[in-house]
Design a protein around this nucleic acid. Structure first.
Lengths: 318, 318
DNA sequence: TTGACAAGTGATAGCGCTAACATATGCTGC
DNA sequence: GCAGCATATGTTAGCGCTATCACTTGTCAA
């Protein structure tokens, strides 16, 4: 017991004893067993994180924010990736909860019924991140994707564009992208403007897919005035950057012939030949605040429902 | 005990009992405690993975490969990120080992002395990935980065380029990038060609950094014939794509004025206006094979040292 | 019959820690 | 003198599982 106290610096131990214990530990190559420690103390330093993917640069940044929010607390994130599949999410939550984490951070507000029940019933403090359009199980940290889509629609309408195309992927799975699209389309329609193309194939979102879909949209524009667009809204920056690559490769004038807008405000937008019009999502801050909430010593009475706004960044592509 | 056997489908239990146990478990909302299970059985389903970063798209893909290699084995990866700092690596290894993982996958062959000792002494099966230029603690899966750099140098020399620039970042930390550079430079020099620029600032590798450094290199070329380059080799595709973005933005002819080459063969190279000359690293396969080795039931007598080659992909930028 | 073995269930101990309490010593104030 | 407290160490039990062995019943071959 004294050795335990010495190694963990907990309770009263004399400096001399600490030294002796550490010397002995080093000598035998002692490696603490956290399984036993966590079982005995009935608490772990784990924060479970469930993310949809790592291939979108946004989520590693969320993770970095979580790391920042957890820094100095002794807690460690452990995570699972769902690839946007609700069943995988449920599976991940179940798996992670069986390690008795102190907290659980999940992405989005929509979950399977079973997953929601797990979240509601578990002892871990729960935070849902990225989205605020809906009803959280407990706390949530994010932004309104619907409002983001609306804001981008207004921005493009203000610039005088009237014939729009939406270019995304797998909206049946990526519900936040769908909300942005829905907000965008609602404002476009309300303004009496036209949504000429509305693409969301069942393929993984990528720069290449953005390029290919853009090629298709612009080719269709050549076949008649009614298929012509003057502005494209993409599900995210990768897709939009792909669109820009197509335009650069084919000599399509941007924004003269067609304007482009994305979402996220990734680092890459500043590296492109034209700065992309986008909406900078506060993903690091979302991760940081969610983690800080999980790690906070005294719980607030009411779980926070925090809207963390980003900002629309007008670029050179619109 | 019978309940344990029923829930884990281990040993003899009648179908009727399984049914009763599962019904009871569902009724009370039973959630197994893996801490206890792992402590009692003295084995965990964990595979610890230590990666340098997640902001380079390569490492999420390695992780995907690990996931594929572990699929169906019941094992789960858990990981830590070092941001290329040896102290953080050691800390991560220590932390992860205290959860008694069945296996440990670390990136690269160079570690602090203490980290190497931990790897050598621990019970977990160890695999070092990505690199084979050096002495592994036990098994390793990767490729020769030196050979990759050499191959790219030969490719560019064959194309007739003679005045080269190297553009990288933080080579004191990213030892594999350094090996590529060293191989590249050695072949360039041996051929009697010139290395005009050799850049590796202490900044995070990114597309934007690639663009900025390229701008600097090409501006220097205007100041005199002795600073002029006809080909640039980048530490990776992101940096090279940034260089290409600069050229597109400024109307610099590629490969006429300057040729560009990267490393990794990321998805993005196919989305660029010009397909980038690069070397496709077999990162998914590396992850998959390392994980399969960790998960394999019967251990081979000699830990494998597997060289998994990628291929040089000539593009339109050279 | 009898042994051998598969199938099914239960009892006991223990994995390596920490919580909680017990004990011991020295110091302070009155 | 001794209560009262901080400091320091030791003792005991138990966290929730699984390994192991013990036991029972049924089946089949010799």
């Amino acid at each position: 017991m004294t050795a335990s106290r010495a190694l963990n610096r907990r309770g009263y131990v004399s400096a001399a004893t600490i030294e002796r214990v550490e010397a002995a530990a080093a000598k035998v190559g002692y490696m603490p067993n956290r399984l036993a420690g966590a079982l005995a103390s009935e608490r772990t330093p784990l924060v479970a994180v469930v993310l949809p993917t790592l291939s979108n640069a946004v989520f590693p940044e969320v993770l970095a924010g979580i790391g920042a929010g957890l820094a100095g607390t002794g807690m460690t994130p452990v995570f699972g990736v769902t690839e946007y599949a609700p069943e995988a999410e449920e599976q991940n939550i179940r798996e992670l909860l069986s390690w008795r984490p102190a907290g659980l951070i999940v992405t989005g507000l929509e979950h399977s019924v079973a997953a929601r029940n797990l979240l509601a019933a578990c002892d871990a403090r729960v935070a849902e991140i990225m989205d605020t359009d809906g009803t959280p199980v407990s706390a949530c940290f994010g932004l309104s994707h619907r409002a983001v889509g609306e804001a981008m629609a207004r921005h493009l309408l203000d610039k005088g564009y009237r014939r729009f195309g939406y270019v995304g992927a797998r909206l049946d799975r990526d519900l936040r992208a769908r909300k942005r699209r829905d907000g965008f389309v609602a404002v476009i329609r309300a303004a009496g403007a036209t949504l000429v193309h509305d693409l969301a194939p069942d393929a993984r979102s990528s720069m290449l897919l953005g390029r290919q879909l853009t090629a298709g949209v612009l080719a269709a524009g050549g076949q008649g005035a009614d298929r012509r667009v003057d502005a494209l809204y993409y599900s995210n920056d990768d897709m939009a950057a792909g669109g820009l690559m197509h335009c650069l490769a084919e000599g399509v004038e941007v924004p003269g012939r067609v304007a482009l807008a994305g979402f996220n405000g990734l680092d890459l937008v500043d590296a492109l030949p034209l700065r992309l019009t986008t909406y900078r999502s506060p993903r690091f801050e979302i991760g940081r605040q969610a983690a800080a909430y999980i790690a906070a010593l005294q719980a607030p009475e009411i779980p926070p429902r925090r809207v963390i706004d980003g900002e629309l960044v007008p670029g050179e592509t619109s």
